[in-house]
Amino acid sequence: MLKDITLGQFFPGDTPVHRLDPRSKILLLIVFIVALFMASGWAGYGLMILVTALCMAISHISPRNIFKGLKPMLLIIVFTAALNLLYTQGTPLFPGWPITREGLDRSIAMVLRIVLLIAGTFLLTYTTSPMALTDGMERLLNPLKKIGLPVHEITMMMSMALRFIPTLIEETDKIMSAQKARGADFENGNLLQRAKALLPILVPLFVSSFRRADELAVAMESRCYHGGSGRTRMKQLHFQALDLWALALGALLLAAMILLRHFGL
């Protein structure tokens, strides 16, 4: 059951989307999100759906994978839809019901926004290896070093956290089996009993995480890791023509959204 977590998953491939520089992909995601929140009217949302579908098609990511990632967010999506549906003032759709035309419009728009937002984010993580992602992030945040932000250290921590998610999941599975073999019961009982039943998993998990962190630190130091200053990379990031085109298309999308909003289409 724990193995179903898709967070930070990466599907290797060789499509134009995979080949884009991670920096452009991060920038494009930001452009995408801004455009998404500027979208208004059916034309705007239609265009956003089209762009998302196109990106998915180019990168060979099947909608099934996106929907799998949506599953944990289902509660939030349903909740947002219901709230907007029921609590928006306007002309009622059916006499006597609290549902209004404006409410229906707005709840559909909100659901579309959340779904597209998640789909866009997943497109980035599905097509970019965690290493490339943190690399791109570090380069983009580089200017912030001037104001004293430890950019390299932050991104290094991020990539390590991503790296250890599968390890921790495996470890949790193992400890759970071992405690089950000693008769521990994780499925029955009330909320308090179940929370208490987690203790035999959490304590060993914490202990082993600290041990692992310690070992990792020693291993890194013995290979002369001393932070970001003067560090070179094996894989240099280079902007290519493809990136220019992609960024230009992103700018075009943003312009289209501004125009659509301005003219109220």
Binding site: Q179, K180, P204
Partner: peptide, 16 residues
């Protein structure tokens, strides 16, 4: 589980 006791590899990592 009361009849068949299973000791995993590196069982010391389960002490809590």
């Amino acid at each position: 589980k009361n009849k068949v006791g299973l000791v995993f590899q590196y069982p010391e990592y389960q002490l809590f």
